[in-house]
């Protein structure tokens, strides 16, 4: 039994590798190669600002990504907003991605004073999905957080009003989680 399963696994792995190689070849043939982006000077100043916090900073493509843990999220955001050379006053987007075990909340920030942008990411386990709210830092996070609460079941502590935004009252489940099953609908009227 055991050996059989191992063989299956190997087969599966080989298949995936082959698919990946095929995809890579296709991309090369189509002239779509990963573009080179110049390293951003922003990374140094972010690292300098956040050096006493447990954050990971890296550059992927043209985005500077700051990975932080939920505990130091508020501190990170505050520093990013208030440090003179960063001034991330503009919260572009707040979204969440469900990675089954974890839910990642992504904050896209930019500055109107300086031509730079950054991404703050933090992950919380799906069972205890809870994060501090950033509404005190950017008021514009209000509805975004309510939306994430609706669709992912993420609780934001300190949020002024955590009522449903997009879904109706009494909606069951969190539709954007990968575990959500879309209810079967009957054909025709009354379905």
């Amino acid at each position: 039994m055991n050996g059989n399963e191992g063989a299956e696994d190997q087969k599966e792995q080989r298949r995936e590798e082959a698919l990946a190689r095929g995809a890579e070849r296709r991309r090369q043939r189509e002239g779509a190669t990963a573009k080179e982006y110049p390293p951003s000077p922003l990374i140094q100043s972010i690292v300098k600002t956040l050096r006493h916090l447990s954050v990971d900073t890296e550059q992927i493509m043209d985005e500077v990504i700051v990975r932080t843990d939920p505990e130091s999220l508020i501190e990170t955001c505050k520093l990013l907003r208030e440090t003179a050379e960063l001034e991330f006053t503009y919260l572009r987007c707040l979204s969440a991605v469900d990675y089954v075990e974890n839910i990642e909340v992504v904050y896209h920030l930019s500055s109107l004073e300086h031509p730079h942008k950054t991404v703050v990411k933090t992950q919380v386990p799906t069972e205890s999905a809870e994060l501090p709210s950033v509404v005190p830092i950017w008021r514009g996070a209000d509805w975004h957080e309510r939306e994430v609460h609706d669709l992912f079941g993420m609780a934001f502590t300190n949020h002024p009003n955590m009522s449903p935004l997009l879904l109706f009252d009494g909606f069951e489940g969190f539709p954007l989680r990968k575990s959500y099953k879309i209810p079967e609908q009957k054909e025709g009227l009354g379905g």
Partner: peptide, 25 residues
């Protein structure tokens, strides 16, 4: 905001940041 997985025909997650949403806030 587009998140993709390797070798999938569908995206893993798409989030649209809409300007009207923020104006209404």
């Amino acid at each position: 905001y587009l998140v993709t997985e390797e070798n999938k025909e569908q995206p893993y997650r798409i989030k649209m940041r809409s300007p009207s949403f923020c104006s209404l806030m």
